[in-house]
Deep mutational scan, measured.
Amino acid sequence: MEVRTIKVFTTVDNINLHTQVVDMSMTYGQQFGPTYLDGADVTKIKPHNSHEGKTFYVLPNDDTLRVEAFEYYHTTDPSFLGRYMSALNHTKKWKYPQVNGLTSIKWADNNCYLATALLTLQQIELKFNPPALQDAYYRARAGEAANFCALILAYCNKTVGELGDVRETMSYLFQHANLDSCKRVLNVVCKTCGQQQTTLKGVEAVMYMGTLSYEQFKKGVQIPCTCGKQATKYLVQQESPFVMMSAPPAQYELKHGTFTCASEYTGNYQCGHYKHITSKETLYCIDGALLTKSSEYKGPITDVFYKENSYTTTIK
């Protein structure tokens, strides 16, 4: 009895394709271990004539594949690729409408935090270190965002349907971005203890939790000093293409032309909904596939993004 075979390709990165001759009487799992086709788990399936010449994702289970996976995804987590594939199996079914010149995501599976993050990423200057993220990001900007969303979920250790947080998501993504040249110098002034300067680099240099107003941050924000008295913390120097200011959701007025974009969060910790506000020729609110415009805006804002380049204080 002759062994019926077909020729397929296996890959971990969709760049390096490895030619395989597979036995049609055995499952993919018996031949390769966990195997995925377009995100779908085909591990328990036997090869079919229609699979001839198709590319299958496999887990990096030998040295060659491990090197290829690390170079593309910059992670050695053995569960990463499987999590990416199972997320992709959902995100490829989502709709990605162009809204006001940006790629958004039609609401499904509690994905409003991903839509808000995706919209924000198209408006701030950011370059990702893992080629996987950078490639998928370019495709997302062009309207094909399924891979990018699935990668975000995998890097953030999230599953489809789980509630997510924009600030946490951005923080994970910033860790995989090139923020080497970003720098922030802060000064804390206390009447009792004097003053202390701190220099922050990388992710810490672009994120701040405690106030939404970048102007206020430049002037000074009140913080408790270690001595128990009130101290003032203010920005001395900022070198970065953008800054992200966050605070627990509270009524906040966004003035046209003073910011790049913002995240609105309605609801409580267990259950809520994100919308995205962007400042173009007027203010726009993007909620999944829905767009509304207004000249002014007041609502429960939790993150505001500002364009920056270089700032030095005039406070002496």
Results as ranks from 00 to 15, higher is better:
E2D: 13
I6Y: 07
K7N: 11
K7A: 15
V8S: 02
F9T: 10
F9R: 11
F9P: 06
T10R: 08
T11P: 02
T11N: 10
V12A: 05
I15H: 15
I15V: 15
L17W: 15
H18A: 05
H18W: 03
H18E: 15
T19P: 14
Q20V: 12
Q20P: 04
Q20E: 08
V21H: 14
V22K: 04
V22N: 06
D23N: 12
M24F: 11
M26W: 09
Q30L: 12
Q30M: 15
F32M: 08
T35P: 14
Y36R: 06
Y36I: 04
D38N: 09
G39C: 14
G39Q: 07
G39F: 10
D41M: 10
V42T: 09
T43V: 00
K44F: 13
N49L: 14
S50V: 10
H51C: 05
H51L: 03
E52L: 09
E52M: 10
E52H: 13
G53F: 11
G53C: 09
G53V: 06
G53S: 12
F56G: 06
F56Y: 02
F56T: 09
V58I: 11
L59R: 08
N61A: 12
D63W: 04
D63E: 11
D63V: 07
V67T: 13
E68A: 07
E68H: 04
F70R: 06
F70H: 09
T75H: 03
D77R: 03
S79A: 10
L81F: 13
G82N: 13
G82A: 15
R83S: 06
Y84S: 05
M85F: 00
M85V: 08
S86G: 10
A87I: 00
L88G: 05
N89F: 12
H90K: 12
H90I: 10
T91M: 05
T91D: 02
T91W: 03
T91V: 07
W94P: 10
W94H: 06
W94R: 03
K95Q: 15
K95A: 10
K95D: 15
Y96D: 08
Y96N: 04
Y96G: 11
P97R: 13
V99T: 09
N100V: 09
N100G: 15
L102F: 05
I105L: 03
K106T: 05
A108N: 04
D109I: 01
D109W: 01
D109T: 08
N110H: 03
N111A: 03
A117V: 12
L118N: 09
L119Y: 01
L119D: 02
L119N: 06
L121Q: 09
Q122H: 03
I124M: 01
I124D: 08
E125I: 00
L126C: 06
L126Q: 01
K127P: 09
K127R: 12
F128W: 12
P130F: 01
A132D: 03
D135L: 08
A136R: 01
Y137H: 05
R139K: 12
R139Y: 09
R141G: 08
A142N: 14
E144S: 11
A146M: 06
A150F: 04
A154C: 03
Y155K: 01
Y155M: 00
C156S: 07
N157S: 07
K158S: 00
K158R: 07
K158G: 03
K158H: 08
T159N: 13
T159C: 13
V160H: 07
V160K: 02
V160F: 01
E162F: 03
L163Y: 15
G164I: 04
D165Y: 11
D165C: 15
D165G: 14
V166L: 07
R167F: 00
E168A: 15
T169P: 04
S171V: 09
S171D: 12
Y172D: 11
L173S: 08
F174K: 00
H176R: 10
A177S: 09
N178A: 10
L179Q: 06
L179T: 08
D180H: 10
D180A: 06
S181L: 08
N187F: 04
V188T: 15
V188I: 14
C190H: 02
C190A: 05
C190L: 00
T192L: 05
Q195D: 11
Q196W: 11
Q197S: 11
T198N: 08
T199N: 08
L200R: 08
L200D: 08
V203A: 13
A205P: 02
V206Q: 04
V206C: 03
V206M: 01
M207Y: 09
M209I: 15
T211F: 08
T211W: 03
L212A: 03
L212K: 02
S213Y: 06
S213R: 00
Y214Q: 03
Y214F: 09
Y214A: 00
E215N: 02
Q216H: 10
F217K: 04
K218W: 00
V221F: 12
V221T: 03
Q222R: 12
I223D: 04
T226P: 13
T226R: 14
G228A: 03
G228K: 02
K229F: 08
Q230V: 13
A231S: 04
A231Y: 00
K233M: 15
K233V: 13
K233A: 12
Y234A: 02
V236K: 04
V236C: 04
E239S: 08
P241L: 02
F242P: 08
M244T: 00
M244Y: 01
M245D: 03
S246V: 00
A247T: 03
P248R: 13
P249I: 08
Q251N: 06
Y252H: 11
L254D: 05
T258S: 06
T260E: 08
C261T: 01
A262H: 01
S263F: 07
Y265V: 00
G267A: 15
G267W: 15
G272E: 04
Y274A: 10
Y274N: 06
Y274D: 00
H276N: 08
H276T: 00
I277G: 01
K280C: 10
K280V: 06
L283Y: 10
Y284N: 03
C285Q: 09
I286V: 07
D287I: 06
A289F: 06
A289C: 04
L290N: 14
L291S: 15
T292V: 09
K293M: 13
S294I: 15
S294E: 11
S294G: 07
S295H: 11
E296H: 14
Y297C: 03
Y297P: 01
K298W: 12
G299C: 00
I301W: 01
V304M: 07
F305T: 00
K307G: 08
N309G: 10
S310W: 09
T313F: 14
T313Y: 15
